[in-house]
Design a protein around this nucleic acid. Structure first.
Lengths: 189, 189, 189, 189
DNA sequence: AATGAATGAGCCTTCATTCAT
DNA sequence: GATGAATGAAGGCTCATTCAT
């Protein structure tokens, strides 16, 4: 659709992205375009050219996490054991959120009016895989039948939130994930 | 500690609080002191006198939810059936968050450097009750032994988050709470 | 409606107005609020408090010219000789435009969505007087019958424009005004 | 003076001009070079190469109106009836302004420091014809003797302005032009 | 010649906080 | 105590112009 970027432009764009990623990693979730420009040693205009809004930048940052996740979700949807698919999928989604604050923002938020095409596509693909995973597990009788794909999605976001407000998120990851998995398992109902 | 407020000052304070509560209820989570002052028909200075920081105002707003919750937690800690205590406590904590955004902010956040005495006290009392509830349930064998009081606390905040990013939080409350309760129940381990 | 300004606030407001008037007189028709603030030695916020938009400032600037003009127009509408009323009115309107660029902007422009109450009132009063002047002169047979009050209004704005793009506006004023007056006199038709 | 343009360059130039003309016709009087470039599907650099300043572009746009006008003015200067020459000339100048905003900008403005050769020439030719028309009419006793060519010029610009700030310029053209013509006719003095 | 990415000054506006009245 | 005017740092964004490709 759009022509490939010129080499120098691409380099700039990547540099801005890298800078933004660092900023977020350091906990600066505000991600102000002016600030990123300054940090990247680049004119504001350059940042605005590549990312007309803060949201556009966030989505671009989230892209790689999203790509990975989409693949993981797809393979999760083909696991021999349906329930294992659920486990794998949820862990992947949770891990992505612990790792990448930009991704967390995108995934915890309703789709943007004018999201990048890529983001919309990823979302759609991920939803599809999730739906498959969910249906298989429900048919296998291992997943509560009263949960929808949206529910799963949000419950994982909630778990990620619980981890985020904790001191050592990574240490607790397995425990909290286990709680979630046990909670959604059908056995108990 | 501080002298009782003059009657008119107290009236002002209450009015500001009421205004702020309305604002938050309407979804204005920014809660700008200037804005509140204007809405309350009161000078900015007045707001600042009573609530030197935004956080102070938020804590004041959260106070009544906190008071209620502390009572509920206390009575939960005396339930005949330990597990029922857990259920009651968690539901109360969850409900408070769905109802009162100010409370949500306070409870999802590490204690403030210079929090109001009341807030600190409430927090402590609530922690104590929670601890009791938790220990009783763990001794009764109904609650996973590997969960601490902090874990419980955060898991509920996570569940509240999951509800908050949903369309009709109230409709889903019971389902999500059930997931959480099943997840933390010891039966499965 | 709004409470009277505090003394110091009023002083500030006046100072900003004076600064803005100077700026315009010096030919700076852009009238940027930041710039005015700097020139006035006042915080930007102060300017914005008193004049939330550039237009509000312009209207405030135009106010005194408008007040004078409205009076002149009113007395013009009571002249014994209807045609003299026309002459007086048009000269007054023309002069106001040569003297006050802010007034020129307001009067050459369609009424603002949210104009100050004063501006709207002035406009209305001026229109009314103009209408009277016009009707009397038309009934006396001295003014072309095919001209409306809007036409008069705009023709004067046009004449003011002709003067503005000239080197020595004031020197030409009488000549251009004469051309206009002769042009709208009925005698010739 | 400058070498003839390469064919493709000429095509580009024309295309930019056409785009700019459309933009102005649509009421975009700002005429930002960046914007024009984008609309024309051409690099900014290309626009800058052909038109180093906004003004240069405006003058280029005005060129064709100017050419036509110069011819009309010339033929007006040869009318049998001197006064008719005045009528024809003024109407032509007025019409050009109603039709072409670029021309209006050029003609209402003092000659540019570094105007294109063509513009300067056109101006000169137009001035010459106007002077002729004016002198003949004054000698014939039909035009006020106290008007200079500059006066005529500006009075027409003023009339154009009056029309421009009106709702239906074209509907009023004849009336306003009549007012002007009657105003400058010598009969009345 | 053409391209269009980059620049960065600079305007607009908001808002937390202070302090004279 | 209450008031609300003043402050000005700070962030958002645009756009004329340059220059490497």
């Amino acid at each position: 659709m759009s022509p490939p970027l010129r080499a120098d432009a691409a380099r700039n764009r990547d540099h801005v992205l890298a800078t933004a990623r660092s900023a977020m990693a350091e906990g600066d979730l505000a991600l102000q375009l002016n600030d990123i420009a300054r940090r990247a040693g680049v004119g504001v205009g350059t940042v605005y050219r590549h990312f007309p809004t803060r949201r556009a930048l966030v989505e671009a940052l989230a892209d790689s996490s999203f790509t990975t996740l989409v693949e993981e979700a797809h393979s999760a949807s083909r696991h021999d054991v349906a329930w294992t698919g659920v486990e794998v999928l949820l862990r992947a989604l949770l891990l992505a959120q612990l790792t990448d604050p930009a991704f967390t923002e995108v995934i915890s938020t309703s789709p943007d009016q004018d999201a990048a095409a890529g983001t919309t596509a990823h979302r759609e693909q991920f939803r599809a895989s999730t739906r498959t995973v969910l249906e298989r597990a429900q048919q296998a009788g291992s997943l509560r039948p009263d949960l929808t794909e949206d529910d799963l999605h949000r419950l994982v976001c909630g778990t990620a939130f619980a981890l985020r407000i904790s001191e050592n998120p990574t240490d607790r990851l397995d425990r909290y994930l286990r709680v979630l998995l046990d909670g959604i398992h059908a056995g108990r109902v």
